[in-house]
Every structure is written in structure tokens, then in C-alpha cells.
């Protein structure tokens, strides 16, 4: 299920209010920021995970994704831009 990161009403960033232990059902209430990565679109999160798994090699990623090197590099630049805007 997709994690909602923006308020459907005013479009501002959402915060985490409650955390739940799945095993004993203990609830922790507070006001936590979402991790920076969680605030990225799912596609970008997947890209970052693939990037780390490929030891940061864009060449390997290009081969794996069947795309050209500059296509993958441009996607990385897009993710960097999203991170600096988040």
C-alpha cells in the first residue's frame, strides 16, 4: 500500500503521529517527521535501492534496466533534485 505523504486537504507534508508494535499492539504517540526517503515517489525509492544494490554503478544499472547510461544518469539527477526539494 502506498504511504500517503501529503495532506489531501492542504497538500502540506504529513507527520507521523502514531506507531504500532505489530506483535504486542503497543502504541507510541508523538510527532515524528517522515524519513527523507519515504517522502520521495515510489519509483525514486526503488531507484535508490537499486543504485545501492549495484554499488553505485550507473553502468551496471543501465545494463540491468536495459537503458542507456545517460538515461540512468538523468534519472539519478532527477532523484537528487527531488531530495534537495524535499
Amino acid at each position: 500500500m502506498k504511504l500517503p505523504i501529503k495532506c489531501p486537504s492542504c497538500e502540506n507534508k504529513l507527520l507521523v503521529k502514531t506507531l504500532l508494535c505489530d506483535s504486542c499492539e503497543t502504541q507510541v504517540d508523538g510527532k515524528y517527521n517522515l524519513p527523507e526517503l519515504a517522502s520521495l515517489p515510489l519509483e525514486s525509492q526503488k531507484f535508490i535501492i537499486d543504485f545501492v544494490k549495484n554499488s553505485g554503478s550507473l553502468k551496471n544499472m543501465a545494463k540491468e534496466m536495459n537503458l542507456s547510461y545517460p538515461s540512468v544518469r538523468n534519472r539519478l539527477d532527477e532523484v537528487i533534485k527531488q531530495l534537495s526539494n524535499s
Binding site: 536495459n66 537503458l67 542507456s68 547510461y69 545517460p70 538515461s71
Partner: peptide, 11 residues
């Protein structure tokens, strides 16, 4: 076509 091909292969 450059989403798929670039670099030395394209050259």
C-alpha cells in the same frame, strides 16, 4: 532511440 542506446555503441 537514445533511451536505449548511447555511448560507444551508438558511436
Amino acid at each position: 532511440p537514445f533511451e536505449k542506446i548511447a555511448g560507444i555503441k551508438a558511436l
